[in-house]
Amino acid sequence: MIPSSFSYQKVNSVAEAIKALSSGEAKILAGGHSLIPTMKLRLNSPSKLVDIGALAELRGIKESGAEIIIGAATTHQEIATNKIIQSKLPLFAQGGNSIGDVQVRNKGTIGGSLAHADPAADWAAIVLASDATIEVQGGKGTRKIKATGFFNGMFSTALQDDEIITAVHVPLAVGSKGSYAKFPQPASRFAIVGCAVMKMADGKVNIAFTGISNCAFRDQAAEKAISGKKIDASTIESASKAAVEGVNILSDHYASEKYRKHLAKVYLKRALLAVS
């Protein structure tokens, strides 16, 4: 399968990338592991690709004050195998390691995954549960968007046409514990259902789902059912009962609406058990 023709520009700075985005139907190319498959299937035919693969400024992981900053073009594998991430943000190591396979993780990037906003992407649930902030840069400058305000719908985000993601800021919540449980599609390992849970030191529990609906979301009803309470069989049961109610649940040839709903409750239980 061969994508339709496009023009190609490799850029040397974020500013150059933003400028390049302003002309035509341009798309950013990072690792390309979401974009290229859709272009090969001709689901997406941008007239221009702006390659940010050479931008070292968008890569890397650093600790800064009370947060970890992950460059947007950092690969899933770099995140999953990074020592700081493994010791201070194990949820990100666990989540990153669950994406695709090693070859995919060696190319795919966190920023690319977030910007693409596949309804079954793993990072979406993980950034939501960890109260992360997404830093973006565009023609009008830099801004930070809370993960909870980032995903608008299927393949749709709060990014403007000339904006690119530059970094993901993850707060280091002392005494917190996170876990990601997913039922993967057996070939692609995208989440048919993915549930990320982060239990804070003060007892607040963040619960985010991916794979369930048009975009990843925080499940406030489930959070309310368990936050501030001891995580045990009975509170896990009430959170599971409250979860994904009133949500427009996807139904496709992998999983019917009814089955997905059932899986969501099961995988929430597993994620909660892991942090109890």
């Binding site: 399968m1 190609y8 490799k10 190319l29 390309g32 592991h33 290229i36 498959p37 090969k40 690709l49 390659d51 693969g53 594998q77 695709g100 396979d101 090693v102 070859q103 995919v104 060696n106 190319k107 070939a187 692609s188």
Partner: peptide, 28 residues
């Protein structure tokens, strides 16, 4: 040809990747 099977795996800068899901220009 859909980045699932791994038959096309090569190393780019020492890392295993699926060459069916990379553009040749990315290997410049």
């Amino acid at each position: 040809d859909t980045s699932g099977c791994g038959a096309c795996t090569v190393h780019v800068n020492g890392k295993a990747v699926k060459s069916c899901t990379l553009l040749a220009v990315q290997a410049d």
